[in-house]
């Protein structure tokens, strides 16, 4: 559970871990019904509309100006998104 939480970039409280473990077991038990189906040779569907290679002309188009793109950022600085250091002790 904690490994998956780490992969998902979630920090769960002890209470959350407990409830989540129970909830997910129940859901997975239901979902497990499909794991025993014999689906050998069936093509997986990732997308329902038969489309391939949708092209468009490679032409420059106007895009959002930097100040608009940064307007909703929690901490914009000098035309960029400021983030904390990835190093814990930096």
């Amino acid at each position: 559970m904690l490994h998956v939480a780490r992969l998902a970039r979630l920090k769960l409280t002890e209470d959350e871990v407990e409830t989540m473990t129970g909830d997910l077991s129940g859901i997975l038990e239901h979902v497990d019904r499909i794991s025993n189906l014999d689906l050998e040779g069936v093509e997986p569907t990732s997308h329902v509309v038969a489309l391939e290679n949708v092209w468009r002309a490679d032409e420059p188009r106007p895009s959002l100006p930097p100040e608009v793109a940064l307007a909703s950022a929690p901490e914009p600085q000098d035309g960029a998104f400021r983030v904390p250091s990835p190093q814990a002790d930096a």
Partner: peptide
């Protein structure tokens, strides 16, 4: 740090 910020924000 960055990872803490991600996790705290999302949680």
């Amino acid at each position: 740090d960055l990872l803490q910020m991600y996790e705290t924000t999302r949680s």
